[in-house]
Amino acid sequence: MKLNIQLFAGIAERLGTSLIEYEYDVAEPTAALLKEKLAESYPELASQIRTSFLAVNQQYAPADTIISAQDEIALIPPVSGGDGTEDRKSEQGASSTKQSTPDGRYQITTSPLSVEATTNLVITANHGAALTFVGTTREMTGEQRTVHLEYEAYVPMALAQMAAIGDEISERWPGVLCAISHRIGQVDVAEISVVIAVSSPHRSDCYDASRYAIERLKQTVPIWKKEIWEDGSEWKGHQLGPWNPMQQQ
C-alpha cells in the first residue's frame, strides 16, 4: 500500500521534502504501527517521529486508528503556535495569502495582523467585556538575540483546530465569542504573530476564556515557529512537558 505523508517543520527540513511516498506492506495499518515503521525507516529522525502525532484527514489520530491509502496523512511534530502546505510558497516571498473559516473568525495569513480587525469580530451589542491578547516577536531570550521568526502551518487543520477551540470555549463559558488570527511566514522583531480576541457579557469570563484559548492554541493547533538568530536557527516545539494534543485541559 502506497501512502502519501505530509511533513512539517524540522522533520521536513532534515529530509529536504514536505511530502514522502511511503510503501507499507500491510493493508490498513494502525496509526501506531505506521509511526513506528516510519521511525525505523528514518533512524536519524526516530526520536522526533516518536514524539510526533499522526493526523488523518486533518484530525489527530488515536493509536488504534486504521489508515487506508485514500486518507490524507500528516506527521505533526510538537506545535508551538502563538508564543504550510501550499502556503510554503508564500513564505518564500510569493504574493500574500489569507485563509479563514466560513464565519471569518479564525484566519491564517501571510500579511501583517490587525488587532482592531480581529477584536471587531467579537464585539456585539450584548457583550459588555472584550479582551485581546497580542503575541509579538521578542528580540532577546536571555543572551540569545532573535533576528526574526519564521512560522509554518498545516493550514486546513490549523483552521479546524482554531474553530474547535472556539467551540470548547462556548461549551465552558456559554455566550463567550472567540476570534483568532495567526500570521505565517517571516515575522520580524516586535511584529505581531497572533491575535486572540474574546468577548462576553461579563469580564471574568473574558479573562478565563482568553487564557484557555492561548494555552490550547499552543497545545493543539499545527503551527510551528523557527527562531532565526545571528549565528543559527532552531525549530521550537511544545515546551511544557510531554506533548499530547488530544489531552483535554
Rank of each mutant, 00 (worst) to 15 (best):
P43C: 11
Q70V: 00
Q59T: 14
G128Y: 05
R105I: 03
E215S: 09
S114Q: 10
V195T: 11
K98W: 02
R14H: 11
A213R: 01
R14W: 03
A130F: 11
R216S: 13
A63E: 15
I180G: 08
D103F: 00
G10S: 15
M246R: 14
S204P: 00
S68T: 15
E44V: 01
L121G: 02
S18Y: 03
R14Y: 05
G16R: 12
T124C: 01
T220W: 01
M157V: 13
A153F: 09
G241N: 06
N4S: 14
Q92L: 15
T118P: 05
E191C: 08
Y207P: 00
D231H: 13
V79C: 12
P62Y: 10
K98C: 12
I108G: 02
W243I: 12
P78T: 05
G10I: 01
P29A: 07
L75R: 09
D83H: 07
Y207Q: 06
S111M: 12
F133S: 14
G93T: 11
E171W: 00
V221N: 07
K218P: 01
P242F: 01
K89F: 13
E168H: 03
A190F: 14
Q144K: 15
K225N: 08
L113E: 08
D167K: 10
Q70W: 01
Y207W: 12
V134Q: 12
A74F: 02
P201G: 03
G232I: 07
Y207T: 09
T110G: 05
A55F: 06
I180S: 04
Y151W: 13
N244A: 07
T101A: 04
S80F: 07
V56S: 02
A39P: 07
I169K: 08
H148K: 12
I223A: 07
E91A: 09
N4T: 13
I76G: 06
T119N: 12
E230K: 14
E40R: 10
I108R: 04
A74N: 03
A31Y: 05
E215C: 02
A31K: 02
R211Q: 14
V198K: 05
G166R: 05
E116Q: 15
D205F: 06
S204W: 06
D87N: 11
T17M: 00
L149C: 11
A209V: 06
C206P: 05
E230W: 04
I49T: 07
K98D: 00
S95M: 09
L15Y: 06
E227R: 13
S200W: 04
Y154E: 05
V122F: 02
G241F: 03
N126A: 11
K89R: 12
L75V: 13
A74C: 07
F53Y: 15
T132K: 02
E72Q: 13
P222M: 07
Q48K: 09
R183I: 08
E230P: 00
G16S: 10
I67N: 09
W224I: 05
E44W: 01
I49C: 04
E36T: 13
N57E: 08
Q99L: 09
T124F: 03
Q247A: 14
E21M: 01
Q247E: 08
L121W: 02
V194S: 10
G84F: 11
G82C: 13
K37A: 15
Q239W: 02
Q219I: 00
L19R: 12
R14L: 14
I108H: 04
Q107A: 15
T118V: 15
D103H: 00
Y106T: 03
Q107S: 15
S111N: 11
L113V: 14
E150T: 08
T109A: 14
